[in-house]
Protein backbone atom coordinates (compact mmCIF):
# COMPACT_ATOMS: atom_id res chain seq x y z
CA UNK A 1 0.00 0.00 0.00
CA UNK A 2 2.53 2.55 -1.22
CA UNK A 3 1.61 5.61 -3.28
CA UNK A 4 2.61 6.10 -6.88
CA UNK A 5 5.83 7.96 -7.33
CA UNK A 6 5.25 11.68 -7.06
CA UNK A 7 7.20 14.90 -6.90
CA UNK A 8 7.02 17.17 -3.92
CA UNK A 9 7.27 20.88 -3.25
CA UNK A 10 6.70 22.84 -0.10
CA UNK A 11 6.25 26.45 -1.20
CA UNK A 12 6.71 29.30 1.23
CA UNK A 13 4.25 31.66 -0.45
CA UNK A 14 0.78 31.31 -1.83
CA UNK A 15 2.04 32.54 -5.17
CA UNK A 16 4.64 29.80 -5.31
CA UNK A 17 2.01 27.23 -4.40
CA UNK A 18 -0.23 28.38 -7.21
CA UNK A 19 2.69 28.38 -9.63
CA UNK A 20 3.58 24.85 -8.60
CA UNK A 21 0.02 23.70 -9.18
CA UNK A 22 -0.01 25.39 -12.55
CA UNK A 23 3.24 23.70 -13.55
CA UNK A 24 1.75 20.33 -12.65
CA UNK A 25 -0.81 20.82 -15.41
CA UNK A 26 -3.70 19.30 -13.57
CA UNK A 27 -1.62 16.52 -12.06
CA UNK A 28 -0.89 18.41 -8.86
CA UNK A 29 -2.51 17.75 -5.54
CA UNK A 30 -2.54 19.96 -2.49
CA UNK A 31 -1.75 18.34 0.82
CA UNK A 32 -2.42 20.05 4.12
CA UNK A 33 -3.35 17.67 6.94
CA UNK A 34 -3.49 14.68 4.64
CA UNK A 35 -5.89 12.73 6.83
CA UNK A 36 -8.21 12.01 3.92
CA UNK A 37 -5.64 12.32 1.15
CA UNK A 38 -3.03 10.06 2.76
CA UNK A 39 -5.16 6.90 2.66
CA UNK A 40 -6.22 7.68 -0.90
CA UNK A 41 -2.58 8.17 -1.90
CA UNK A 42 -1.47 4.99 -0.15
CA UNK A 43 -4.19 2.99 -1.89
CA UNK A 44 -3.28 4.64 -5.19
CA UNK A 45 -6.81 5.91 -5.60
CA UNK A 46 -5.28 9.36 -6.06
CA UNK A 47 -2.21 9.44 -8.31
CA UNK A 48 -0.69 12.91 -8.45
CA UNK A 49 2.47 13.80 -10.32
CA UNK A 50 3.21 16.51 -7.80
CA UNK A 51 2.27 16.94 -4.17
CA UNK A 52 2.08 20.58 -3.16
CA UNK A 53 2.50 20.77 0.59
CA UNK A 54 0.95 23.95 1.96
CA UNK A 55 2.03 23.37 5.54
CA UNK A 56 4.78 25.99 5.31
CA UNK A 57 2.37 28.76 4.30
CA UNK A 58 2.58 30.45 7.66
CA UNK A 59 0.11 33.13 6.65
CA UNK A 60 -2.59 30.44 6.49
CA UNK A 61 -2.08 29.22 10.04
CA UNK A 62 -4.37 31.69 11.77
CA UNK A 63 -7.91 31.87 13.01
CA UNK A 64 -8.83 35.52 12.43
CA UNK A 65 -11.76 37.05 14.24
CA UNK A 66 -13.56 39.81 12.40
CA UNK A 67 -16.62 41.73 13.40
CA UNK A 68 -18.89 39.81 11.09
CA UNK A 69 -17.01 36.63 10.44
CA UNK A 70 -14.29 34.22 11.48
CA UNK A 71 -11.64 33.32 8.92
CA UNK A 72 -9.87 30.01 9.27
CA UNK A 73 -6.67 29.57 7.29
CA UNK A 74 -5.87 26.47 5.28
CA UNK A 75 -3.43 24.93 7.71
CA UNK A 76 -5.37 25.49 10.91
CA UNK A 77 -5.69 22.04 12.45
CA UNK A 78 -9.07 20.75 13.55
CA UNK A 79 -7.62 20.35 17.01
CA UNK A 80 -6.52 23.97 16.97
CA UNK A 81 -10.02 25.09 16.08
CA UNK A 82 -11.43 22.80 18.75
CA UNK A 83 -9.32 24.59 21.36
CA UNK A 84 -9.90 28.08 20.00
CA UNK A 85 -11.76 30.50 22.21
CA UNK A 86 -12.78 32.39 19.09
CA UNK A 87 -14.41 29.30 17.62
CA UNK A 88 -16.08 28.47 20.93
CA UNK A 89 -17.39 31.99 21.28
CA UNK A 90 -18.35 32.85 17.74
CA UNK A 91 -18.98 29.56 15.98
CA UNK A 92 -20.86 27.36 18.41
CA UNK A 93 -21.96 24.93 15.70
CA UNK A 94 -18.40 24.38 14.51
CA UNK A 95 -17.29 23.91 18.10
CA UNK A 96 -20.02 21.32 18.60
CA UNK A 97 -19.11 19.40 15.45
CA UNK A 98 -15.32 19.29 15.74
CA UNK A 99 -15.07 16.58 18.43
CA UNK A 100 -17.04 14.22 16.21
CA UNK A 101 -14.29 14.22 13.58
CA UNK A 102 -12.10 11.14 13.71
CA UNK A 103 -9.86 10.90 16.75
CA UNK A 104 -7.52 13.19 18.60
CA UNK A 105 -4.55 12.20 16.48
CA UNK A 106 -6.35 12.76 13.19
CA UNK A 107 -7.63 16.13 14.43
CA UNK A 108 -4.08 17.02 15.44
CA UNK A 109 -3.11 16.90 11.80
CA UNK A 110 -6.31 17.28 9.80
CA UNK A 111 -7.34 20.81 8.86
CA UNK A 112 -10.71 22.54 8.92
CA UNK A 113 -10.33 23.83 5.40
CA UNK A 114 -9.12 20.49 4.10
CA UNK A 115 -12.23 18.76 5.38
CA UNK A 116 -14.51 21.44 3.94
CA UNK A 117 -12.79 21.16 0.58
CA UNK A 118 -12.59 17.36 0.51
CA UNK A 119 -16.40 17.32 0.39
CA UNK A 120 -16.97 13.90 1.82
CA UNK A 121 -20.76 13.60 2.08
CA UNK A 122 -20.52 11.85 5.42
CA UNK A 123 -18.05 14.29 6.96
CA UNK A 124 -19.02 16.79 9.62
CA UNK A 125 -17.45 20.04 8.48
CA UNK A 126 -19.07 20.39 5.05
CA UNK A 127 -22.39 20.29 6.87
CA UNK A 128 -21.24 22.99 9.29
CA UNK A 129 -19.95 25.09 6.40
CA UNK A 130 -23.28 24.72 4.65
CA UNK A 131 -25.31 25.65 7.70
CA UNK A 132 -23.18 28.72 8.38
CA UNK A 133 -23.15 29.98 4.76
CA UNK A 134 -19.38 29.71 4.71
CA UNK A 135 -17.29 31.15 1.92
CA UNK A 136 -14.24 29.43 0.48
CA UNK A 137 -11.40 31.74 -0.48
CA UNK A 138 -9.62 30.45 -3.56
CA UNK A 139 -6.42 31.50 -5.27
CA UNK A 140 -5.64 30.32 -8.75
CA UNK A 141 -3.74 31.28 -11.89
CA UNK A 142 -6.46 33.79 -12.73
CA UNK A 143 -6.26 35.47 -9.35
CA UNK A 144 -8.43 35.35 -6.26
CA UNK A 145 -12.03 34.32 -6.13
CA UNK A 146 -14.59 33.24 -3.59
CA UNK A 147 -17.05 30.41 -3.68
CA UNK A 148 -20.03 30.28 -1.46
CA UNK A 149 -21.35 27.06 -0.13
CA UNK A 150 -23.58 25.39 -1.29
CA UNK A 151 -22.52 26.34 -4.83
CA UNK A 152 -19.05 25.06 -4.01
CA UNK A 153 -20.31 21.47 -3.61
CA UNK A 154 -21.09 19.74 -6.88
CA UNK A 155 -21.55 16.17 -5.75
CA UNK A 156 -19.88 13.26 -4.04
CA UNK A 157 -16.26 14.29 -3.29
CA UNK A 158 -16.63 16.90 -5.97
CA UNK A 159 -16.37 20.71 -5.78
CA UNK A 160 -15.87 23.60 -8.14
CA UNK A 161 -12.25 23.92 -7.06
CA UNK A 162 -10.08 23.51 -10.17
CA UNK A 163 -6.97 21.31 -10.04
CA UNK A 164 -4.75 24.38 -10.29
CA UNK A 165 -6.54 26.28 -7.53
CA UNK A 166 -5.77 26.48 -3.86
CA UNK A 167 -8.33 26.98 -1.13
CA UNK A 168 -6.52 29.33 1.23
CA UNK A 169 -9.21 29.86 3.85
CA UNK A 170 -12.83 29.40 4.78
CA UNK A 171 -14.75 32.36 6.16
CA UNK A 172 -17.60 31.58 8.49
CA UNK A 173 -20.04 34.44 8.83
CA UNK A 174 -20.59 35.12 12.52
CA UNK A 175 -22.47 38.35 12.99
CA UNK A 176 -23.29 38.99 16.60
CA UNK A 177 -26.91 38.21 17.33
CA UNK A 178 -29.04 41.25 18.07
CA UNK A 179 -29.57 42.14 21.68
CA UNK A 180 -31.96 39.77 23.43
CA UNK A 181 -31.21 37.00 20.95
CA UNK A 182 -29.28 33.93 22.02
CA UNK A 183 -27.49 31.80 19.45
CA UNK A 184 -27.33 28.13 20.31
CA UNK A 185 -26.20 25.14 18.32
CA UNK A 186 -26.29 21.40 18.51
CA UNK A 187 -24.76 18.60 16.51
CA UNK A 188 -25.71 14.93 16.64
CA UNK A 189 -24.29 12.03 14.79
CA UNK A 190 -25.00 8.35 14.30
CA UNK A 191 -21.86 6.43 13.47
CA UNK A 192 -21.22 2.75 14.05
CA UNK A 193 -18.27 3.60 16.27
CA UNK A 194 -17.24 6.89 17.79
CA UNK A 195 -14.90 8.63 15.40
CA UNK A 196 -16.24 6.95 12.28
CA UNK A 197 -17.71 8.91 9.44
CA UNK A 198 -21.36 9.65 10.05
CA UNK A 199 -24.07 7.39 8.75
CA UNK A 200 -26.26 10.38 9.39
CA UNK A 201 -25.40 13.60 11.20
CA UNK A 202 -27.65 16.55 11.96
CA UNK A 203 -26.82 20.13 12.76
CA UNK A 204 -28.96 22.93 14.08
CA UNK A 205 -28.22 26.50 14.96
CA UNK A 206 -31.01 28.59 16.37
CA UNK A 207 -31.05 32.30 17.11
CA UNK A 208 -33.65 32.50 19.83
CA UNK A 209 -35.48 35.47 21.17
CA UNK A 210 -35.49 34.18 24.67
CA UNK A 211 -38.03 36.59 26.03
CA UNK A 212 -40.51 35.94 23.25
CA UNK A 213 -39.70 32.23 22.98
CA UNK A 214 -39.33 32.63 19.22
CA UNK A 215 -36.74 31.47 16.73
CA UNK A 216 -35.52 34.41 14.67
CA UNK A 217 -32.97 32.50 12.61
CA UNK A 218 -32.67 28.78 12.06
CA UNK A 219 -30.12 26.60 10.32
CA UNK A 220 -30.97 22.93 9.96
CA UNK A 221 -28.91 20.50 7.96
CA UNK A 222 -28.05 16.87 7.45
CA UNK A 223 -25.11 14.94 6.16
CA UNK A 224 -24.94 11.32 5.09
CA UNK A 225 -28.25 11.43 3.28
CA UNK A 226 -27.12 12.62 -0.18
CA UNK A 227 -24.01 13.20 -2.24
CA UNK A 228 -23.66 16.61 -0.62
CA UNK A 229 -24.77 17.99 2.75
CA UNK A 230 -28.28 19.37 2.73
CA UNK A 231 -30.07 22.28 4.36
CA UNK A 232 -33.79 22.51 4.73
CA UNK A 233 -35.26 25.90 3.93
CA UNK A 234 -38.85 24.89 4.58
CA UNK A 235 -37.94 23.54 7.99
CA UNK A 236 -36.05 26.69 8.83
CA UNK A 237 -39.00 28.79 7.78
CA UNK A 238 -41.37 26.69 9.84
CA UNK A 239 -39.17 27.19 12.88
CA UNK A 240 -39.05 30.94 12.37
CA UNK A 241 -42.81 31.05 11.97
CA UNK A 242 -43.63 28.85 14.91
CA UNK A 243 -45.37 30.57 17.79
CA UNK A 244 -44.14 27.92 20.21
CA UNK A 245 -41.13 26.32 18.44
CA UNK A 246 -40.78 23.13 20.52
CA UNK A 247 -44.24 22.14 19.37
CA UNK A 248 -43.08 21.99 15.77
CA UNK A 249 -39.76 20.19 16.28
CA UNK A 250 -41.32 16.79 15.64
CA UNK A 251 -43.17 17.90 12.53
CA UNK A 252 -40.13 19.75 11.25
CA UNK A 253 -38.07 16.60 11.70
CA UNK A 254 -40.74 14.60 9.94
CA UNK A 255 -40.79 17.04 7.04
CA UNK A 256 -37.05 16.90 6.73
CA UNK A 257 -37.03 13.12 6.65
CA UNK A 258 -39.75 13.17 3.99
CA UNK A 259 -37.73 15.58 1.93
CA UNK A 260 -34.58 13.46 1.68
CA UNK A 261 -33.94 10.58 -0.66
CA UNK A 262 -30.95 8.76 0.79
CA UNK A 263 -29.21 5.75 -0.69
CA UNK A 264 -28.64 2.34 0.82
CA UNK A 265 -25.08 1.21 1.25
CA UNK A 266 -22.90 -1.07 3.32
CA UNK A 267 -23.52 0.87 6.51
CA UNK A 268 -27.24 1.53 6.37
CA UNK A 269 -30.40 1.21 4.36
CA UNK A 270 -32.21 4.20 2.92
CA UNK A 271 -35.08 3.59 5.32
CA UNK A 272 -32.69 3.58 8.24
CA UNK A 273 -31.12 6.85 7.17
CA UNK A 274 -34.51 8.45 6.75
CA UNK A 275 -35.63 7.31 10.15
CA UNK A 276 -32.44 8.32 11.92
CA UNK A 277 -32.45 11.67 10.14
CA UNK A 278 -35.83 12.37 11.67
CA UNK A 279 -34.63 11.37 15.13
CA UNK A 280 -31.41 13.36 14.97
CA UNK A 281 -33.03 16.51 13.60
CA UNK A 282 -35.52 16.35 16.41
CA UNK A 283 -32.72 15.88 18.93
CA UNK A 284 -30.54 18.73 17.72
CA UNK A 285 -33.50 21.10 17.67
CA UNK A 286 -34.45 20.19 21.22
CA UNK A 287 -30.88 20.44 22.41
CA UNK A 288 -30.23 23.78 20.73
CA UNK A 289 -33.47 25.16 22.08
CA UNK A 290 -32.64 24.11 25.63
CA UNK A 291 -29.15 25.52 25.29
CA UNK A 292 -30.51 28.86 24.21
CA UNK A 293 -32.26 29.10 27.53
CA UNK A 294 -29.41 27.61 29.50
CA UNK A 295 -27.07 30.03 27.75
CA UNK A 296 -24.78 27.10 27.37
CA UNK A 297 -22.95 27.72 24.14
CA UNK A 298 -24.43 31.00 23.03
CA UNK A 299 -22.47 34.22 23.19
Amino acid sequence: MKPVDFGYVRPLTIADAVTALACAQGEGKVIAGGQSLGPLLNMRLVRPALLVDVNALAELAAIEEGELEVRIGAIVRQRGAERSAVVAGRLPLLAEALPYIGHVQTRNRGTVVGSVVHADPSAELPLVALCLDAIVEIVGPAGNREASIPDFYEGYLSTDLAPDELAVAVRFPAPAPPSGIVRAAAFAEMARREGDFAIVAAAAQLDVDVAARRVVDARVGLTGVAGVPLRFAAAETALRNAAEPPRVFASVAETVSDEIDPDSDLHATAAYRRSVARVLVSRVLERAWLRAFAGENGP
Binding site: R192, R193, E194, G195, D196, F197, L266
Partner: peptide, 12 residues
Protein backbone atom coordinates in the same frame (compact mmCIF):
# COMPACT_ATOMS: atom_id res chain seq x y z
CA UNK B 1 -10.36 -1.38 5.20
CA UNK B 2 -10.48 -0.53 8.88
CA UNK B 3 -13.01 2.17 8.04
CA UNK B 4 -15.48 -0.53 7.00
CA UNK B 5 -14.39 -3.57 8.98
CA UNK B 6 -15.18 -2.15 12.38
CA UNK B 7 -13.11 -3.29 15.28
CA UNK B 8 -14.13 -2.01 18.70
CA UNK B 9 -12.15 0.87 20.18
CA UNK B 10 -11.94 2.17 23.74
CA UNK B 11 -15.41 3.63 23.21
CA UNK B 12 -17.11 0.39 22.24
Amino acid sequence: TFADYMMPTTHE
